[in-house]
Computed example of a mutant assay.
Amino acid sequence: MSDEEEDYMSDAFLSKMQDVKPGVSMVRRVKEAIKKETRQKEQNIKNRQKTYKEQEKESREAALQSSISNENKGFALLQKMGYKAGQGLGKEGAGRVDPIPLNIKTDRGGIGMEEVKKRKAEEELEHYRQKTRAKQQNETKSLEDFRSRVRTEREERKIEGDFRRSQRACEQLDNQKGITVPREDWYWPKADADDEEDSPEEEEEEEEIVELTSFDKLQILTSYLRGIHFYCIWCGTTYNDEEDLCSNCPGDTAADHE
């Protein structure tokens, strides 16, 4: 090998090569740039002249942190009257010890505006609560009315069904005893074909009669069935006599048989 040709495997050749590790030099340069920028910002903050508001704020905070000196005329008068530093105000020393805190207004609202806003917000909240309570009460009342209406309709349907059963039982039992005409027209079920039209005089008489409800008719008819035929529609049984009926039947209402 000639002297002019370099040995690529020798240390002399390798020492001349630059470090080409991927990303190492780039990361180092970025970190140095960030540090330099941070130092520059800190230096600018130190060299920057503070505004009037910042100076005023620092002065106020420094004054509030320091206690009143003996040179203050007001403090000197308090000491003459027997006040000692750190003692509460008042004759008994039960008053406040720390000065009244200073609250700086940052808005353009007048004095007392915050109280007005607070009172208004409380009134609106109370109004909202009242509306919510009224809505809940109305919903509860509507639900109760609905349940009561459903319960009433169910009871009316049950009463009407018991009344129809009583009519059929009354007709059958009357026929067994040879009774061909019911004591009252509504004791038996109505025939499918209507009778001849009533005369005007009969219509006027019917208008004067007070119409009985299904519940009233049911009570009257069941009393007739129990008294004449010793029959209970809820038991579905014809008893031998009144004594047998009173001894074995739970009662004369549907509720007694539940």
Results as ranks from 00 to 15, higher is better:
L212C: 07
S148V: 01
S148K: 14
D19A: 09
K141I: 03
G74L: 02
R226E: 01
W234E: 04
I179P: 01
P200F: 00
I111F: 09
V150L: 08
I179T: 08
D162Y: 10
F163R: 03
F146W: 13
L143K: 15
D145H: 15
Q65E: 14
A169D: 00
Y128G: 12
S10K: 01
G90P: 06
I179S: 00
K118R: 14
C246W: 01
S59D: 14
T222N: 12
W186M: 04
T132G: 02
L218C: 08
E203Q: 12
G178Y: 08
C246R: 12
E197P: 14
Y128H: 09
E211V: 05
E123G: 03
K21A: 12
S69T: 15
E204T: 01
P101L: 01
N44G: 05
G23W: 04
Q130K: 02
I68D: 08
H229C: 03
P182V: 06
K57V: 06
K118F: 06
Y239I: 03
L89I: 11
L125T: 12
W234P: 04
V97L: 10
R39Q: 15
V181L: 11
K16C: 09
E122G: 02
H127S: 07
E184L: 08
K16G: 10
F163C: 00
N240T: 15
Q55T: 06
V24C: 01
P250F: 02
G82E: 02
P101D: 12
G161W: 10
D216E: 09
A134K: 12
A191L: 13
P99N: 15
D162W: 05
R129A: 10
R129Y: 08
G95M: 02
K105P: 05
F230C: 03
G23N: 13
R164Q: 04
K80A: 12
N44M: 14
K57F: 11
T152V: 01
Y52L: 07
D216R: 06
Y187S: 01
T180R: 14
D7N: 15
S69K: 13
M1I: 03
R149T: 09
D241M: 06
E37F: 13
Q49H: 05
L218W: 05
H127V: 05
F146Q: 15
K84I: 10
T238V: 14
K158Y: 03
K46V: 15
I209T: 04
Q130M: 04
L218M: 07
S59A: 15
L225G: 05
E208P: 00
Q136I: 13
G86S: 11
F13S: 06
W234R: 07
D256H: 10
Q18H: 10
Q172F: 10
T106N: 07
P250L: 04
G88T: 13
A121G: 02
T106I: 13
R183G: 02
Q167M: 00
D244C: 11
D7G: 08
E242Q: 14
K217T: 01
I220M: 06
R168S: 06
S223E: 06
D192S: 07
G112V: 12
K91Q: 13
D192V: 10
E42R: 07
E32C: 11
I100S: 11
E196M: 08
E171F: 03
G110Y: 04
P250R: 10
E6Y: 13
Y52V: 10
D3A: 04
Y128D: 08
M17A: 08
R157I: 02
G110E: 06
I179E: 10
E155W: 03
K135E: 14
F75N: 12
E122T: 04
K31L: 14
E258M: 08
E124T: 11
E92T: 15
E124R: 12
E139P: 00
